[in-house]
Amino acid sequence: MTRIHVNTTVNGDKVDFLADPRETLLDCLRDKVGMTGAKEGCGTGDCGACSVTLDGRLVCSCLVLGVEAEGKQVETIEGMANGGELHPLQQKFIEYAALQCGICTPGILVATQALLKKNPDPTEEEVRYWLAGNLCRCTGYDKIIRAVMDTAKDLRAEKVGGDV
């Protein structure tokens, strides 16, 4: 099987790899780039554990081929913290006990960050529907939703404070 040389950018760093065209972006991130933060929970786009952004758009990396990443910007959970400084969402998830086993957490954080970029003031219903494709089997979602709502509030207050 001929493999294709793919040049892409992951979390701001240029990377390249050889991909069989049947391999997904998730496979390539995990097995070729060495980033195992995105998880495979289903392989069919139903669980969201593999969420990443592709040119800023939230996608399931299991539903993107590795070869499609050519020339694109990929952002993963590994790029969310700024060095040693956690993103406010990451910090709040820990404080709120918004994770139990933690396998869905990277996907939920990436998805939530995308939501807050698009909509800094979501309602509870909007958060729940945005995250409907991120399955969590441990928490019943309660603490996740609370952590997201509270982070959004903090970020809005910070922004207002900054403007003043």
């Binding site: 786009g45 139903d46 969201g48 969420s51 592709l54 758009r57 939230l58 996608v59 399931c60 539903l63 993107v64 998805a111 995308a114 939501l115 945005w130 995250l131 409907a132 494709g133 991120n134």
Partner: peptide, 9 residues
């Protein structure tokens, strides 16, 4: 159709 993620594609 599908999730937010699927909507992206």
């Amino acid at each position: 159709i599908g999730s937010t993620q699927v909507q992206g594609r």
